[in-house]
Design a protein around this nucleic acid. Structure first.
Lengths: 152, 152
DNA sequence: ATGCCTTCGTTAGCATAGCTAACGACTCGT
DNA sequence: ACGAGTCGTTAGCTATGCTAACGAAGGCAT
């Protein structure tokens, strides 16, 4: 192997790059799980709540699609958020089948606090990064989000 | 909010960047889950197998630490890999408490095939990316892996 | 050499989060 | 008005994470 491939290896081969991004995603999430527990909001809950807070009222199906999860999974997720008083559910006035999910003021507060606590560790380490490396990550973030989105 | 912040927002604020990286990691993994199922190897199994294949024989505890998971979780993970014939477990000759985990030839084959299948979708999309964007991701991958590692 | 303390891996039991299948309620087009 | 399609839920399964508790093995001091 190359002498200093630990950090500097520049995976130009797409399949290798894909693999490394995938591996990095797994380990990054495991790394943050501890903070999740402390905040009382697990990763999926926090992620879903975030969409509800910033995405305004939306139907359960839309929320499930946004989170790339099947509807039953989102039903359960929303129920726990509702029981915690972070979101409300009300029937759509125009279509009785649909349910509109909206964040409560408390949900918005909790989200802000939870996000802060959860990303504190990561943010601290980002602050200690050299500016050029932080710059790279700053540009990579939108690309990663795009990669995670459905094909079109 | 800004009009076109969906993709182009350049999160310079560390806490915002941390949050976006976290969100991207969640969605990226959900995106790849379908391929996981098809390959018969879930994300944690594939990740652990990868460490065993490339990290040579190692103890269960070391593997758990490498995967940032508690020992009981790794015990179960290894058992399923062993039942699938992808790894072997043998007692450490020098220390009867420890167990050495090693990949079988079949494990190496399956890993290669599984990784290929799993990352195929992602790799295909990476190939379609403009060279400059792929370059950014190529440089970001090692940084992300470093971020996910324990402090020091 | 004996005993205590630590370390390793396992078992047991719990919570969460994903999925599919099946179903009732509702809408809509004909 | 009725049949087809859509929405959300329930039921039930699997996988993955955790902590607590335990037995087996090693290490060290006396």
């Amino acid at each position: 192997m190359a002498k200093d491939d630990t950090v500097s290896e520049r995976s130009d081969e797409p399949s290798v790059l894909a693999d490394r991004l995938h591996s990095a995603a797994i380990h990054l999430l495991r790394r943050l799980r501890a903070e999740d527990v402390a905040s009382g909001l697990t990763a999926p809950r926090l992620s879903a709540l975030s969409v509800v807070v910033f995405g305004g009222p939306l139907t359960l199906r839309a929320l499930a699609a946004a989170e790339q999860v099947q509807p039953p999974t989102m039903t359960r997720l929303v129920r726990t958020l509702e029981q915690a008083g972070l979101v409300t559910r009300r029937p759509d006035p125009g279509d009785g089948r649909q349910v509109l999910i909206e964040a409560t003021p408390e949900g918005r507060e909790i989200l802000a606090a939870g996000r802060a606590r959860r990303t504190a560790t990561l943010a601290r380490r980002l602050e200690n990064l050299p500016p050029d490396e932080r710059e790279i990550l700053g540009r990579a973030a939108p690309l990663l989000e795009r990669l995670a989105r459905p094909p079109d």
